[in-house]
Amino acid sequence: MPAVATAPFVFTGCVEVRQALQRTASDERELMDRLEEVPPGSIFYHTHGYFLRHRPITTAYGNDFAAWVAVQVRDQALSERLAVVNPFEFASLDALREELVTVVHDHLRRLRAVPRVESGEAFHFQQSYIVEVELGPPATTLTEFRDGLATVDASAIYFHMVEARARLGRRAGDFAEWIRASLGLTELAERIERIDSYMTSLERVRARVLSLVDAELERTQ
């Protein structure tokens, strides 16, 4: 008899309403200045949100800032330094902002001229609002959770593993939290919590969660 959760898990997908902030950068100094002044939501959009928007193709740069510096400014060194900043390692968006500004500042200190866009496009700062969408039947057992996770829209993986952790203050992520609090499976919850969502696709994150859940189901059956 499988354990029944004390509260059901509701899969929630999401859709972004994107907003242009009317703030732009044409060189790396402007990028640094704007990074200091844009709302935290814009830092989130261009770092964590990258993984929602780029799911059909590879996440080659890790965030929009690194992608712009590489493709439009053609400064590979700064692009590499920005790409390696893992947004999931920071406790707050302001801490992440500080790190990004520091990276650009340290890079500019070593240069005599500020690299700028010549024939490419300026960086346009944006932010987004998330519209939540409840999907599928609620799961009350680990098996139902597994079945729901296997087929749910990829935006739900983003919502529960990225949005919940970085913007909604649920640091463990919704999957791990539900498995721990409602099913009492502490070890499985910890393994899911340790999944590195950076520089991968939402489908790979889904596959990793599924493989951990499958292993748990196999062990208990």
Binding site: V17, R18, Q19, A20, Q22, T24, E121, A122, H124, Q126
Partner: peptide
């Protein structure tokens, strides 16, 4: 609403992107 952020102009109202 604009198709791209760079298609717009400075405005006192929110600019969404579709």
């Amino acid at each position: 609403v604009f198709a791209l952020p760079r298609f717009g102009r400075r405005l006192a109202i929110p600019q969404y992107l579709i």
